Computed example of a mutant assay.
Amino acid sequence: MNNINQQRQQLRHQCELVFPGFHTLSPAEEFRAMSAWCETNHIEHDIYGEGELLSNFEQKIASLLGKPAAVFMPSGVMAQLIAVQLWAERSGLPRFGMHPTSHLIGHEEQAYQALLKLHGVPVGDRLTPILAADIDAVKQSLACLLVELPIRHSGGQLPDWEQLQALKEKARERGIPLHMDGARLWESQAFYGKTHAEIADGFDSVYVSMYKGIGGIAGAVLAGDEDFIATARLWQRRLGGTLVHQSPMVASSAMRFDERLSQMEACLQRSRALAEGLQNIPGIRVNPAVPQTNMMHIYFDAHQDKVMAVRDKIAEEEKCWVVGTVRPAEVPGWSVTELYVGDNLLALSNEQVIPYFRQLVG
């Protein structure tokens, strides 16, 4: 980490108000909370993936998603690579489809090519979710299609319910298994007003994150049919993911899981109220204009260096951290940041928050 990044980390830590995300504990606070939860619930370590805490949590997630089985893994990268590998094995096709902004393309150093020798086919437009018509446009046979719910790189956009059902039906017609990249599925449920199982119905496998929305130390869960998950466990061991103890990751997720899920509806409504207020600031645009999850992209009619300099000044002088990283937007002279709305903003009104955003473009 370079000096300026270290200085900005220190600035953020000294702030009394932090707008993005959920309240996070220090390592010492986190470990004390885990210790108390484990003592109350009489938790024992798992041994290489075998143990009551782990198996109960896996079954809880499987039931929530309406799938027969699930397996906890140390990372979403591992979970999704295993998923595409298994669909390639089942179909005999070394080729799968994914959104142009998929995590597998942009953040994993081409692992599906380097490790698994698979061919990834971009499907759909990078600014919108994958729709049924996008499957029609694919002329190649696919082992599976990864569908991200929501699309992070377009501000957390989702297909509406009818579009999602049409996508599932089109995949069935083409005989293409659907795998859900549900890193932010927990944030999507409030938009649909359906159960998690109803959303996941029609997906042959599902990955969900245990740290992004839930706030666990790390980890992911992969769900599917019993044979699929049994083979996934085999690949988890092959890839070095069967750790001697996964209980610290599982405990940090399990102890806050229900509470975090219960907050997602309020976070969505707070996102929409904030977006409505931001739209009235000259020089700011929000995508999507009406958030579909508790996430949005905020565009500034200003260079990123200027916006970040003002943000740092606010942090230093007013002890308030307004936004995270600001990067160049595609329109020259504009910049953009991603804002994830968690419980930090639930207790703050627009009257308290909006003036700080005005300063960023003032």
Score class of each variant (00 low, 15 high):
S335C: 09
A220K: 00
S26I: 15
E89G: 03
L86A: 01
C267S: 09
Q279H: 13
H245A: 09
A220R: 00
F19N: 12
H23T: 15
G92C: 10
L239G: 02
V310P: 07
L115P: 04
E148D: 13
M255Y: 04
P328Q: 00
Q292F: 15
N5Y: 15
R260V: 06
K60D: 08
P20R: 14
L243W: 06
Q6L: 09
F96I: 01
S154W: 09
L178P: 15
Q189E: 14
E108S: 12
G202C: 03
H103P: 09
P177D: 02
A329K: 06
F19T: 09
A62E: 00
R32C: 15
D305S: 14
K170N: 06
L104S: 10
D181S: 13
M249H: 09
Q10S: 13
N344F: 15
A223F: 03
K212E: 13
I199K: 02
A70I: 01
Q165F: 00
V123K: 03
E338R: 14
A111P: 03
T337L: 07
E16M: 11
A88V: 01
A220Q: 00
Q246C: 06
P282K: 09
E162V: 07
H245L: 11
N287P: 12
H119T: 09
V208Y: 03
A254R: 14
Q85T: 06
Q113T: 14
P150E: 09
L185V: 03
V322D: 02
M296H: 06
I82E: 03
